[in-house]
Simulated assay, not measured.
Amino acid sequence: MNYRQIETFYWAARLGSFAQAAARLNATQSAISMRIQELEARIGVQLFDRSQRTARLTPQGTLLMSHAEEILLASDRFLHAAAEKEEIVGYVRLGVAEIVALTWLPRLIRFVRENYPRLQLEIEVSLSHLIEEKLYAGTLDVAFAACEMSPSRFVSTPIETIQFAWMCSPDLAAVPEVLTPKRLSELPVFATSREWQFRGSTLTWLTTNDVHFRNVTICNTFRTAASLAIAGLGLAYLPEQLYRAEIETGRLRRLRSDPEPSPLQIYAIRPLNAAAPTHLLLEKAAETILAEPVVGANAVADK
Protein backbone atom coordinates (compact mmCIF):
# COMPACT_ATOMS: atom_id res chain seq x y z
CA MET A 1 0.00 0.00 0.00
CA ASN A 2 1.46 3.36 -1.01
CA TYR A 3 0.58 7.03 -1.29
CA ARG A 4 -0.26 6.81 -5.00
CA GLN A 5 -2.85 4.07 -4.42
CA ILE A 6 -4.52 6.01 -1.60
CA GLU A 7 -4.51 9.20 -3.67
CA THR A 8 -6.13 7.31 -6.56
CA PHE A 9 -8.81 5.86 -4.27
CA TYR A 10 -9.59 9.32 -2.85
CA TRP A 11 -10.01 11.06 -6.22
CA ALA A 12 -11.94 8.19 -7.82
CA ALA A 13 -14.36 8.31 -4.90
CA ARG A 14 -14.58 12.10 -4.77
CA LEU A 15 -15.08 12.52 -8.52
CA GLY A 16 -17.30 9.45 -8.84
CA SER A 17 -15.45 8.16 -11.90
CA PHE A 18 -12.26 6.26 -12.71
CA ALA A 19 -12.04 8.23 -15.97
CA GLN A 20 -12.20 11.60 -14.19
CA ALA A 21 -9.66 10.40 -11.61
CA ALA A 22 -7.36 9.40 -14.49
CA ALA A 23 -7.66 12.90 -15.97
CA ARG A 24 -7.06 14.51 -12.58
CA LEU A 25 -3.95 12.41 -11.89
CA ASN A 26 -2.69 12.45 -15.49
CA ALA A 27 -2.78 8.66 -15.74
CA THR A 28 -4.50 6.09 -17.92
CA GLN A 29 -7.82 4.63 -16.83
CA SER A 30 -6.27 1.15 -16.77
CA ALA A 31 -3.57 2.44 -14.41
CA ILE A 32 -6.26 3.86 -12.13
CA SER A 33 -8.11 0.52 -12.11
CA MET A 34 -4.91 -1.39 -11.36
CA ARG A 35 -3.99 0.88 -8.44
CA ILE A 36 -7.46 0.40 -6.93
CA GLN A 37 -7.22 -3.37 -7.38
CA GLU A 38 -3.76 -3.44 -5.76
CA LEU A 39 -5.03 -1.39 -2.81
CA GLU A 40 -8.10 -3.63 -2.38
CA ALA A 41 -5.90 -6.74 -2.49
CA ARG A 42 -3.50 -5.24 0.05
CA ILE A 43 -6.16 -4.29 2.63
CA GLY A 44 -8.57 -7.14 1.88
CA VAL A 45 -11.53 -4.82 1.39
CA GLN A 46 -13.61 -4.05 -1.72
CA LEU A 47 -13.75 -0.26 -2.00
CA PHE A 48 -16.05 0.19 -5.01
CA ASP A 49 -19.29 -1.47 -6.07
CA ARG A 50 -18.40 -2.88 -9.49
CA SER A 51 -22.08 -3.42 -10.38
CA GLN A 52 -22.61 0.35 -10.73
CA ARG A 53 -21.75 2.44 -13.79
CA THR A 54 -20.17 5.11 -11.58
CA ALA A 55 -17.32 4.76 -9.05
CA ARG A 56 -19.70 4.14 -6.16
CA LEU A 57 -18.20 3.32 -2.77
CA THR A 58 -19.05 0.22 -0.80
CA PRO A 59 -19.88 0.75 2.91
CA GLN A 60 -16.29 -0.20 3.78
CA GLY A 61 -14.99 2.24 1.17
CA THR A 62 -17.10 5.02 2.67
CA LEU A 63 -15.61 4.37 6.11
CA LEU A 64 -12.07 4.53 4.73
CA MET A 65 -12.63 7.71 2.68
CA SER A 66 -12.04 10.04 5.64
CA HIS A 67 -8.80 8.25 6.51
CA ALA A 68 -7.58 8.60 2.91
CA GLU A 69 -8.30 12.33 3.08
CA GLU A 70 -6.32 12.60 6.33
CA ILE A 71 -3.33 10.91 4.69
CA LEU A 72 -3.41 13.30 1.72
CA LEU A 73 -3.74 16.32 3.99
CA ALA A 74 -0.85 15.06 6.15
CA SER A 75 1.29 14.69 3.04
CA ASP A 76 0.46 18.26 1.98
CA ARG A 77 1.38 19.52 5.45
CA PHE A 78 4.65 17.62 5.28
CA LEU A 79 5.58 19.13 1.92
CA HIS A 80 4.59 22.59 3.13
CA ALA A 81 6.75 22.20 6.25
CA ALA A 82 9.67 21.14 4.07
CA ALA A 83 9.32 24.20 1.82
CA GLU A 84 12.14 26.01 3.63
CA LYS A 85 14.82 24.30 1.55
CA GLU A 86 17.85 25.77 3.26
CA GLU A 87 16.80 24.30 6.63
CA ILE A 88 17.31 20.75 5.37
CA VAL A 89 20.99 20.08 5.87
CA GLY A 90 22.53 16.65 6.16
CA TYR A 91 24.45 13.71 4.79
CA VAL A 92 22.64 10.44 4.03
CA ARG A 93 24.13 7.09 3.05
CA LEU A 94 21.51 5.70 0.68
CA GLY A 95 21.39 2.12 -0.58
CA VAL A 96 19.38 1.35 -3.72
CA ALA A 97 18.62 -1.85 -5.59
CA GLU A 98 19.68 -1.97 -9.24
CA ILE A 99 16.08 -1.76 -10.50
CA VAL A 100 15.71 1.57 -8.66
CA ALA A 101 19.01 2.85 -10.02
CA LEU A 102 17.95 2.02 -13.58
CA THR A 103 14.48 3.59 -13.34
CA TRP A 104 13.66 6.46 -10.97
CA LEU A 105 16.91 7.19 -9.09
CA PRO A 106 17.82 10.05 -11.52
CA ARG A 107 14.45 11.70 -10.81
CA LEU A 108 15.01 11.33 -7.06
CA ILE A 109 18.44 12.97 -7.28
CA ARG A 110 17.03 15.81 -9.39
CA PHE A 111 14.20 16.33 -6.90
CA VAL A 112 16.63 16.44 -3.96
CA ARG A 113 18.97 18.88 -5.71
CA GLU A 114 16.14 21.21 -6.67
CA ASN A 115 14.37 21.16 -3.32
CA TYR A 116 17.08 20.42 -0.75
CA PRO A 117 20.39 21.69 -2.17
CA ARG A 118 22.18 21.28 1.16
CA LEU A 119 21.29 17.61 1.51
CA GLN A 120 24.20 15.43 0.39
CA LEU A 121 23.69 11.82 -0.71
CA GLU A 122 26.21 9.00 -0.76
CA ILE A 123 24.61 6.37 -2.99
CA GLU A 124 25.48 2.69 -3.08
CA VAL A 125 23.87 0.46 -5.72
CA SER A 126 23.89 -3.15 -4.63
CA LEU A 127 21.95 -6.39 -4.39
CA SER A 128 19.13 -6.46 -1.86
CA HIS A 129 20.73 -9.03 0.45
CA LEU A 130 23.90 -6.92 0.64
CA ILE A 131 21.87 -3.77 1.33
CA GLU A 132 20.10 -5.70 4.08
CA GLU A 133 23.42 -6.60 5.72
CA LYS A 134 24.63 -2.99 5.62
CA LEU A 135 21.39 -1.68 7.11
CA TYR A 136 21.81 -4.05 10.04
CA ALA A 137 25.48 -3.06 10.35
CA GLY A 138 24.55 0.65 10.33
CA THR A 139 26.72 1.50 7.33
CA LEU A 140 23.63 2.63 5.38
CA ASP A 141 21.06 5.09 6.71
CA VAL A 142 18.17 4.59 4.28
CA ALA A 143 17.47 2.15 1.45
CA PHE A 144 15.12 1.55 -1.46
CA ALA A 145 15.20 -2.20 -2.03
CA ALA A 146 13.29 -5.48 -1.75
CA CYS A 147 14.64 -6.25 1.73
CA GLU A 148 12.15 -7.36 4.36
CA MET A 149 13.65 -6.07 7.59
CA SER A 150 12.80 -6.80 11.22
CA PRO A 151 9.91 -4.50 12.26
CA SER A 152 11.45 -4.24 15.73
CA ARG A 153 14.39 -2.33 14.24
CA PHE A 154 13.25 -0.83 10.92
CA VAL A 155 10.32 0.94 9.30
CA SER A 156 9.63 -0.58 5.87
CA THR A 157 7.16 1.35 3.71
CA PRO A 158 5.97 -0.23 0.43
CA ILE A 159 6.46 2.31 -2.36
CA GLU A 160 6.46 0.37 -5.64
CA THR A 161 5.68 -3.03 -7.15
CA ILE A 162 7.64 -4.33 -10.14
CA GLN A 163 6.69 -7.24 -12.36
CA PHE A 164 9.51 -9.61 -13.28
CA ALA A 165 9.44 -12.44 -15.83
CA TRP A 166 11.73 -15.13 -17.15
CA MET A 167 13.07 -14.19 -20.59
CA CYS A 168 15.32 -15.72 -23.22
CA SER A 169 16.31 -15.35 -26.86
CA PRO A 170 13.62 -16.44 -29.36
CA ASP A 171 16.38 -18.55 -30.93
CA LEU A 172 16.58 -20.75 -27.83
CA ALA A 173 14.23 -23.40 -29.18
CA ALA A 174 14.63 -25.83 -26.26
CA VAL A 175 12.78 -23.47 -23.91
CA PRO A 176 9.03 -24.18 -23.69
CA GLU A 177 6.44 -21.41 -23.95
CA VAL A 178 5.17 -22.17 -20.42
CA LEU A 179 7.92 -22.60 -17.87
CA THR A 180 7.36 -24.93 -14.92
CA PRO A 181 9.66 -24.94 -11.84
CA LYS A 182 10.92 -28.42 -12.73
CA ARG A 183 11.80 -27.40 -16.29
CA LEU A 184 13.41 -24.17 -15.07
CA SER A 185 15.70 -26.13 -12.77
CA GLU A 186 17.05 -28.03 -15.79
CA LEU A 187 17.78 -25.02 -18.03
CA PRO A 188 20.86 -22.73 -18.10
CA VAL A 189 20.13 -19.60 -16.05
CA PHE A 190 21.84 -16.24 -15.57
CA ALA A 191 20.99 -14.91 -12.12
CA THR A 192 21.97 -11.81 -10.16
CA SER A 193 22.21 -13.86 -6.93
CA ARG A 194 22.23 -17.39 -5.65
CA GLU A 195 18.76 -18.74 -4.83
CA TRP A 196 18.92 -18.03 -1.08
CA GLN A 197 20.17 -14.48 -1.66
CA PHE A 198 17.04 -13.34 -3.52
CA ARG A 199 14.48 -11.38 -1.54
CA GLY A 200 10.74 -10.78 -1.48
CA SER A 201 8.37 -12.51 -3.89
CA THR A 202 11.28 -13.88 -5.97
CA LEU A 203 12.66 -15.85 -3.03
CA THR A 204 9.13 -16.95 -2.08
CA TRP A 205 8.48 -18.27 -5.60
CA LEU A 206 11.78 -20.18 -5.75
CA THR A 207 11.31 -21.64 -2.26
CA THR A 208 7.62 -22.52 -2.61
CA ASN A 209 8.21 -24.28 -5.91
CA ASP A 210 11.42 -26.02 -4.74
CA VAL A 211 13.54 -24.56 -7.55
CA HIS A 212 17.22 -25.51 -7.43
CA PHE A 213 19.24 -24.35 -10.42
CA ARG A 214 21.55 -27.00 -11.83
CA ASN A 215 23.22 -24.76 -14.42
CA VAL A 216 23.43 -21.22 -13.05
CA THR A 217 25.87 -18.40 -13.76
CA ILE A 218 25.95 -15.51 -11.27
CA CYS A 219 26.52 -12.18 -12.98
CA ASN A 220 25.01 -9.74 -10.39
CA THR A 221 23.49 -7.11 -12.77
CA PHE A 222 20.34 -7.14 -14.89
CA ARG A 223 22.19 -5.64 -17.84
CA THR A 224 24.72 -8.45 -17.92
CA ALA A 225 22.08 -11.13 -17.45
CA ALA A 226 19.93 -9.59 -20.21
CA SER A 227 22.80 -9.36 -22.69
CA LEU A 228 23.71 -13.00 -22.10
CA ALA A 229 20.07 -14.03 -22.52
CA ILE A 230 19.84 -12.03 -25.77
CA ALA A 231 22.94 -13.90 -26.96
CA GLY A 232 20.99 -17.14 -26.61
CA LEU A 233 23.07 -18.56 -23.78
CA GLY A 234 20.29 -19.08 -21.24
CA LEU A 235 17.37 -17.59 -19.31
CA ALA A 236 17.30 -14.45 -17.16
CA TYR A 237 14.76 -13.15 -14.63
CA LEU A 238 14.27 -9.53 -15.66
CA PRO A 239 12.03 -6.53 -14.84
CA GLU A 240 9.47 -6.23 -17.62
CA GLN A 241 9.41 -2.42 -17.62
CA LEU A 242 13.09 -2.27 -18.56
CA TYR A 243 12.96 -4.80 -21.38
CA ARG A 244 9.66 -4.13 -23.15
CA ALA A 245 11.50 -2.78 -26.21
CA GLU A 246 13.59 -5.95 -26.49
CA ILE A 247 10.43 -8.08 -26.23
CA GLU A 248 8.57 -5.99 -28.81
CA THR A 249 11.48 -6.11 -31.29
CA GLY A 250 11.96 -9.85 -30.85
CA ARG A 251 15.36 -9.74 -29.16
CA LEU A 252 13.88 -11.34 -26.04
CA ARG A 253 10.99 -13.73 -25.51
CA ARG A 254 8.90 -13.32 -22.36
CA LEU A 255 8.07 -16.72 -20.96
CA ARG A 256 4.89 -17.56 -19.09
CA SER A 257 5.43 -19.31 -15.77
CA ASP A 258 3.22 -21.88 -14.11
CA PRO A 259 2.63 -20.69 -11.45
CA GLU A 260 3.23 -17.02 -12.26
CA PRO A 261 5.45 -15.14 -9.76
CA SER A 262 4.00 -12.21 -7.83
CA PRO A 263 5.35 -8.69 -8.46
CA LEU A 264 8.41 -7.69 -6.46
CA GLN A 265 7.70 -5.18 -3.70
CA ILE A 266 10.19 -2.33 -3.26
CA TYR A 267 10.34 -0.75 0.21
CA ALA A 268 11.63 2.51 1.62
CA ILE A 269 13.59 1.33 4.67
CA ARG A 270 14.89 3.38 7.59
CA PRO A 271 15.86 2.56 11.19
CA LEU A 272 12.94 2.59 13.60
CA ASN A 273 14.67 4.96 16.02
CA ALA A 274 16.24 7.23 13.39
CA ALA A 275 15.81 10.82 14.55
CA ALA A 276 17.16 12.53 11.43
CA PRO A 277 14.34 14.23 9.47
CA THR A 278 16.31 13.61 6.27
CA HIS A 279 15.50 9.89 6.48
CA LEU A 280 11.75 10.46 6.37
CA LEU A 281 12.22 13.23 3.82
CA LEU A 282 13.82 10.82 1.32
CA GLU A 283 10.97 8.37 1.76
CA LYS A 284 8.41 11.10 1.05
CA ALA A 285 10.47 12.38 -1.88
CA ALA A 286 10.42 8.89 -3.43
CA GLU A 287 6.64 8.66 -2.98
CA THR A 288 6.24 12.09 -4.56
CA ILE A 289 8.20 11.35 -7.72
CA LEU A 290 6.60 7.91 -8.11
CA ALA A 291 3.20 9.55 -8.01
CA GLU A 292 4.12 11.87 -10.87
CA PRO A 293 3.72 10.84 -14.53
CA VAL A 294 6.95 10.04 -16.36
CA VAL A 295 7.47 11.77 -19.70
CA GLY A 296 10.23 11.71 -22.28
CA ALA A 297 12.47 9.07 -23.81
CA ASN A 298 13.01 7.23 -20.54
CA ALA A 299 9.35 6.93 -19.64
CA VAL A 300 8.03 3.52 -18.67
CA ALA A 301 4.43 2.44 -18.47
CA ASP A 302 2.54 3.49 -15.35
CA LYS A 303 1.63 0.59 -13.14
Rank of each mutant, 00 (worst) to 15 (best):
M1S: 13
M1C: 11
R4Q: 12
Q5C: 04
T8C: 06
A12H: 00
A12K: 00
L15F: 07
L15M: 10
A21C: 08
A21I: 05
A22G: 07
A22L: 06
A27C: 12
Q29F: 10
I36Y: 01
I36F: 05
Q37R: 15
I43N: 03
G44C: 07
Q46F: 09
D49Y: 02
R53A: 14
R56D: 06
G61L: 00
G61P: 03
T62Y: 00
L63R: 01
L64A: 00
L64C: 00
A68I: 00
L73G: 08
L73K: 15
A74H: 09
D76Q: 15
R77A: 11
H80M: 12
A81I: 07
A83N: 14
Y91C: 11
V96W: 01
V96L: 06
A97Y: 05
E98F: 05
V100R: 01
A101L: 06
A101M: 08
L102V: 05
T103F: 03
W104R: 02
L105Y: 02
P106I: 08
I109P: 04
R110G: 09
V112S: 03
Y116I: 02
P117W: 07
P117K: 09
P117I: 09
L121H: 05
L121D: 05
S126A: 15
S126G: 11
L127P: 00
S128C: 09
E132P: 01
K134E: 10
Y136H: 12
T139L: 07
T139E: 09
L140T: 02
V142R: 00
C147W: 02
C147S: 15
M149F: 05
S150G: 09
P151K: 04
P151R: 04
S152Q: 14
V155F: 11
S156P: 04
P158Y: 07
I159R: 01
Q163Y: 09
W166T: 01
C168I: 05
C168M: 06
S169W: 00
L172A: 08
L172Y: 07
A174L: 14
V175R: 02
V178C: 10
T180H: 08
K182M: 13
P188G: 03
A191M: 04
E195N: 11
Q197P: 01
L203T: 02
D210R: 15
D210H: 15
C219L: 11
C219E: 08
C219K: 11
N220H: 14
T221Q: 07
R223N: 12
R223W: 13
R223F: 15
T224M: 12
T224Y: 11
A226E: 06
A226S: 11
I230D: 02
A236T: 03
A236G: 04
L238P: 01
P239A: 04
E240R: 11
E240T: 14
L242W: 08
E246C: 08
I247M: 13
T249I: 13
T249D: 15
L252I: 06
R256N: 12
P259Q: 10
S262P: 03
I266P: 00
R270T: 09
P271K: 12
N273E: 14
A274C: 14
A275M: 13
H279I: 03
E287Q: 12
L290Q: 01
L290N: 02
V294F: 10
V295W: 13
G296M: 07
A299K: 10
A299Q: 10
K303F: 13
